[in-house]
Nucleic acid binder design. Structure first.
Lengths: 346, 346
DNA sequence: CGCACTTACCCAATCGATTGGGTTGTTGGC
DNA sequence: GCCAACAACCCAATCGATTGGGTAAGTGCG
């Protein structure tokens, strides 16, 4: 790698061609397809000379020009609620890795989960002529997806699913069930759920998985034991306050559909003088790197965030290649830690 | 906004032009510059007709084509150690906002702080023809920056600084000083520093600010009280273990140059039976959203992460406009919380 | 020896926007 | 009434890569 921008000027196909005394189109064909097109385009010797010179000059094709001609930018647009949400950040890392392996670059944008922003950011991505979109902030009731589909914009969902569209998600229902089995098994009979935002399938599915399994096990969950909330610590704290405000007894276990909400809930419990993992069990979701590091390590459902991102890229590639793709739900695993490791007498 | 991709086909300048019976170049001039060039290019009436039609058809210029011609992509490349580091994620949000306001889009990539990756990602950005780079993972000893400068690649640093290059950072030296003042004021005399990675100016400056001020106050810091470490919880834990292993006494206060390291250190203290905020004070850096939410809220130096990102964009814009730019250091503020709120008798 | 095939290339149009340089038609000044 | 100075446009080249369609030289074979 000598210099990719020799002397300030960028090397073009034409430069290579004229230096070798052949036509740019020939150079293009040689450099373009590993061997398919290159085969009939030039002699082995010429091909080698071209490749050699390209390497020496540090030639890199101008994606602008190529894209203009081919109508493909090799760009994937990614929309997430916010990148400062660790969960999405990790999924994005998976995306970026997988995309790079396929020769794609990615754009990310934050929608802050606001419909208006989702629209704006989507349009902005399309204006940038991305080849396709990975949507990580889908709302269950959004008309945007249907509109995009009818406009034939290639896209897949990630993290959250919406029936009818291809998605790469965690099997959130299963995740909720795992927590129900665990808490039930530890002898808990009085539980509450910090359920997240009702427009997100992650929240809905985790909650439904938990509640349905709980009832199947013979447990009861009164309606006011399920509290919808924001996904952040503040939301978790408020939800926990609401739960603790009901009546004079408190549940012996809380399931928060998100680690941050769980952390907020732990704070609320503490300030009510309740010992996490002693008086009240708490289980979170996603197993973010913090869960295990907390003073009282948090039990959490580990979702394969990196793989969800990678899978989303595979799916989108499939869509871009015109294949029919199926939604994929990756299996989560429950990690039990101190916050829910005590047994309650039945 | 009717449709930006009407009937599957994208609207081009030529489409607009032919529909209005005028030349594409005229349309371009009208749509291009708000009024400067547009003034002499067409009558007010025509200009209005063009703008109206453009709006109706949802015309959006093809950045590929424009970029090809103008040699500017309106793309800024951003390189960070990792986006799943909350600090960088927030800076990136600042970047993306500010860039969008200026009509730029941004690419992010993770270098994992590995020199090899830094190089690779940088080249990858340049291959994408970004107009300039915002480098958030600069190493103090890196030759890469000098090389980029000699290649005349427009770039600015963010988060970490390196003398000789424009950067947008927190005033980390001041941050360290604030912590020294605080801990000294609370009566601590035996302290240790979890110093971070020695190749990062953030770590070096925060440590130097602390140590120099501490000594100026008349305190002593033996060499083995400064332990270099990774920036994550694991690194903080290990560093704390090292500190606690020295001799039979322990310091009464720890300054970790990063919240995550501080959290790791808190864990180590706990497992040594030491009460955070009671036996040992702990202060972190950055005041990430977690600091205040921890069971024992963590004192931390609040750095203006969002503004650092925004400032980096301003700087890069300056560089791109050919202006001379000065490095900017934004002032941090110390947030004292329970973890360091107790007074030690001198 | 001649003709069909290859092989190894070259030509030129094209993608969509931009821009330096025209070309009309009209108005104003003297 | 004539020329300069606009106003309002049009023309065509250009950016760099791609690609459908040549073409000339060489090879094989009957």
């Amino acid at each position: 790698m000598e210099e990719s921008t020799a002397g300030g000027r960028t090397i073009t196909l034409k430069d290579l061609a004229s230096e070798l005394g052949i036509h740019p189109s020939t150079v293009s064909r040689i450099l373009h397809s590993g061997s398919e097109v290159a085969r009939g385009a030039a002699s082995v010797a010429t091909a080698e000379r071209v490749r050699e010179l390209a390497r020496k000059r540090g030639y890199s094709p101008d994606p602008q020009a190529a894209g203009l001609r081919t109508r493909r930018t090799h760009l994937m647009g990614v929309i997430v609620p916010r990148l400062s949400d660790l969960v999405l950040a990790i999924m994005y890392e998976g995306i970026d890795e997988a995309a790079a392996e396929l020769g794609y670059s990615t754009f990310v944008m934050n929608s802050r989960d606001e419909p208006e922003e989702q629209r704006r950011k989507t349009e902005s991505m399309l204006a940038r002529r991305v080849d396709g979109l990975i949507i990580g902030d889908a709302h269950l009731d959004s008309g945007l997806l249907r509109e995009l589909a009818s406009r034939k914009v290639p896209f897949v969902l990630m993290n959250r699913r919406v029936p009818g569209f291809p998605s790469a998600t965690c099997d959130d229902v299963l995740g909720g069930e795992l927590v129900a089995d665990h808490l039930w098994g530890m002898g808990h009979r009085d539980v509450a759920v910090i359920a997240g935002e009702p427009y997100a399938s992650t929240a809905v599915d985790r909650t439904a998985g938990f509640v349905d399994r709980w009832r199947a096990l013979g447990g009861k969950i009164p309606p006011d034991a399920v509290v919808w909330s924001r996904f952040d610590t503040g939301g978790g704290r408020e939800a926990a306050e609401t739960i603790l405000a009901h009546g004079n007894s408190h549940p012996t276990a809380l399931f928060a559909v998100n680690d941050f909400a769980a952390i907020g809930a732990m704070g609320a419990l503490r300030s009510h003088g309740l010992g996490v993992g002693r008086d009240v069990a708490v289980v979170g979701f996603n197993d973010t790197s913090l869960a295990a590091e907390l003073p009282i390590p948090l039990s959490s459902v580990r979702s394969p965030m990196l793989d969800i991102g990678r899978t989303a890229v595979q799916l989108l590639k499939g869509v871009l290649d015109g294949r029919e793709v199926e939604s994929i739900r990756l299996k989560p695993v429950l990690c039990v830690r101190e916050s829910s490791a005590f047994r309650t007498p039945v």
